[in-house]
């Protein structure tokens, strides 16, 4: 039995982690921590958690592994504290505010010989795994161009304003949603050779951004992320022989062949998953929890290690360093 603590009882803990860990075997949720003790108590009662506190150092003896669902700026410090206690750490994305923080966390993980995993759970989507194979095996010939569009009019039930402050959130849509999108992009296409980055922030955090990218192969494409627009939430790949569109958030993929004869779309199955998963949000937390717990038991790396997660943090960091002004064509003066 693995004893799991959850530090940070915001929306993601309530909607994702708690139901996920509650649903899998070999796990007991033994501790909840939140600076808002009432909030922690409320969830503690709901999930029958024995230890509830507002101070995470009080739970070291009661857990084997910890989920950190904290404001982004606290990720590094909290992760290192738990790693020093030789506790396995699953940390919400983005891994940390900077690549140097990520490196410090990875070093602490190696020194203490306990793994650190990051909640970039889209990699568990079978459709995303299939997309990676299509790209690796050049199933439809060479890639010619690509574009990633992800965004919704922002409506996540935030319970504090940390999300909208650069100091606490690290950034806006690129840092938050983009942690997933950029992870998918780098996982599928490799680290970009060059890029141009544009956003709409003026002293605050960006709500919209665009990244124009060139890959090592010379193929170019772009990414648009938004908190103000309802975009397709798909990555589109134009290959020599086909167009493949993969939903960035769901287990859905669509293929149009150049011959114009056939096209297919639907859910992807693999050995582990034999039922369609069209709304993956809760289920992905389960897949992530299972992989993480089995990796801690068998002491193997989970699918998304700290090293893997650091790549997107580094890229995002580079974007902010080389920021240009996003063209908002209707804005006359700026």
């Amino acid at each position: 039995m693995v004893r799991v603590g959850i530090v940070g009882c915001g929306a993601v803990a309530e909607k994702g982690h708690l139901p996920a860990f509650n649903s899998i075997s070999d796990v007991e949720i033994t501790a909840l921590v939140d600076k808002n003790l009432n909030r922690a108590r409320e969830l503690g009662v709901r999930y029958n958690v024995p230890l509830v506190t507002d101070t995470y150092s009080e739970i070291y003896d009661d857990i084997d592994a910890v989920v950190l669902a904290l404001p982004h700026f606290l990720h590094c410090t909290a992760a290192i504290d738990f790693l020093k206690q030789k506790k396995y750490v699953l940390i919400e994305k983005p891994m940390a505010l900077s690549s140097s923080e990520c490196q410090t966390m990875i070093a602490a993980s190696e020194k203490n010989e306990v793994g650190i995993s990051v909640g970039l759970m889209r990699r568990y989507l079978p459709a995303h795994q299939l997309m990676k194979k299509i790209l690796q095996k050049k199933t439809y010939g060479d890639l010619l161009e690509f574009r990633f569009l992800e965004g919704n009019v922002y409506n996540w039930p935030v319970t504090s304003d940390f999300f909208f402050k650069k100091e606490t959130a690290g950034g806006g849509v690129l840092f938050d949603t983009g942690a997933h999108t950029i992870d998918s992009l780098i996982w599928w296409l490799g680290y970009p050779k060059s890029f141009h980055y544009y956003d709409d922030a003026f002293g605050g955090v960006e709500a919209d951004c665009r990244i124009e990218i060139e890959l090592d192969s010379g193929v170019s494409g772009f990414v648009e992320l938004s908190r103000t627009r309802d975009l397709s939430n798909c990555a589109e790949f134009i290959f020599e022989d086909a167009q493949v569109i993969v939903n960035l958030r769901k287990n859905e993929i669509r293929l149009s062949h150049d011959s114009g004869i056939s096209g297919i779309q639907g859910s992807v199955f693999n050995e582990q998953i034999t039922q369609p998963i069209d709304i993956p949000f809760n289920y992905l937390f389960v897949l992530q929890a299972e992989d993480w717990i089995s990796s801690t038991i068998s002491n193997r790396p989970s699918l998304i290690s700290g090293y893997e997660a650091m790549k997107s943090v580094s890229f995002i960091e580079q974007c902010y360093l080389r920021k240009g002004k996003l063209d908002l064509p209707w804005m006359e003066v700026v």
């Binding site: 996540w156 504090s160 909208f164 003026f202 605050g204 709500a207 908190r227």
Partner: peptide, 9 residues
């Protein structure tokens, strides 16, 4: 606060 994206820029 959920609606604050545009002004948080």
């Amino acid at each position: 606060l959920s609606h604050a994206s545009r002004i948080a820029r």
